[in-house]
Every structure is written in C-alpha cells, then in structure tokens.
C-alpha cells in the first residue's frame, strides 16, 4: 500500500498555520510513521518533479490554517487526490477554551490543539487504511 501524504499549509502569519504543521509532523513522525509521509507544499506547487511523483495518484490529507484552503487547493492544482481536507479552525471551534497566543513556538493551548488535530488526522489515516 502506498503511503498517505499529509500536507499542511504551514501558513506563517498565524498560530493556526503552526498548529497544522505541528499536527502533521506528529502524525508522520510519531503516530503513523509507517503509512504516512509528507512533502513540501511549495515544491509541489512549483512543479518539482520528484515531489509531484510522490503525490501523483496517492491519497492526501490536507490541513489548512485558514478558510482560504491553500493546502487543499494547491494539492488539487498539482493533481493530487484529496481524501480528506481538514481545517484547524474546525478543531478550534470544538475547543474554544484552547486559544493559542503564539505563532513561532506554540504555547500550551496551541500544542494541545495540535495534539487533538493530530488525533483526528490519525483516525482519518486509519479509516483510509481499513478501507483498502
């Protein structure tokens, strides 16, 4: 089975971008390292052949920090298949007590949101794997 590609937007202006990035790396590096991978979103969109070949025909889970949906849009533009598009703001809506206040290095609230989001991503990964 080919690996599932987890791609965060890594938006740099706000905490939600950092949270999405942190959550993706938790899943890829710790929670499901055997069945997931990530690629550089910028390289994908800039047409890097090696990156495109790793995404082409594979299921992707995109994680966006804001409603613009850059990760989802860019993966679609690059020919990837978006199996699930997640948004950090949706996790935050369910946990409004966790209000992140830092961007560069997440505070405790931001880290907690990242862990919750990572759990959601992991469940999506498992669901995709089971369906195969």
């Amino acid at each position: 089975m080919s690996k599932i590609i987890v791609i965060p937007c890594s938006g740099i202006g706000k905490a939600f971008g950092t949270i999405g990035r942190e959550a993706a790396q938790i899943v890829v590096d710790e929670a499901r390292p055997g069945v997931t991978d990530t690629v550089c979103l910028s390289a994908l969109v800039m047409g890097d052949e090696e990156t495109r070949s790793r995404v082409h025909g594979r299921r992707c889970i995109t994680i966006d920090g804001c409603p613009v949906g850059c990760a989802r849009k860019n993966v679609e533009l690059a020919g990837g298949t978006v199996a699930k598009a997640l948004r950090v703001v949706d996790v935050y809506k369910d946990h409004r007590d966790l209000k992140p206040r830092t961007v560069t290095e997440l505070d405790e609230a931001g880290r907690a949101l990242a862990r919750i989001l990572a759990q959601t991503i992991t469940e999506e990964v498992d669901r995709i794997v089971e369906a195969e």
Partner: peptide, 27 residues
C-alpha cells in the same frame, strides 16, 4: 527558515518587515 523569518518579524525588525504567506502566494 520559518523560525528565523518569524524571529525577524517579531524581534529583530518588527516595524520594518511583513511576511507573505507562500502557499497563499502560490494559490
């Protein structure tokens, strides 16, 4: 790259710099 950029924005040249979100730039 990301952390260094944020440090410039937050600490070193706060008044003189802005960041542009690359994924949004590309999208």
């Amino acid at each position: 790259s990301r952390v260094a950029t944020r440090w410039v924005l937050e600490r070193l040249r706060q008044e003189q710099t802005v960041t542009l979100c690359l994924p949004l730039f590309l999208a």
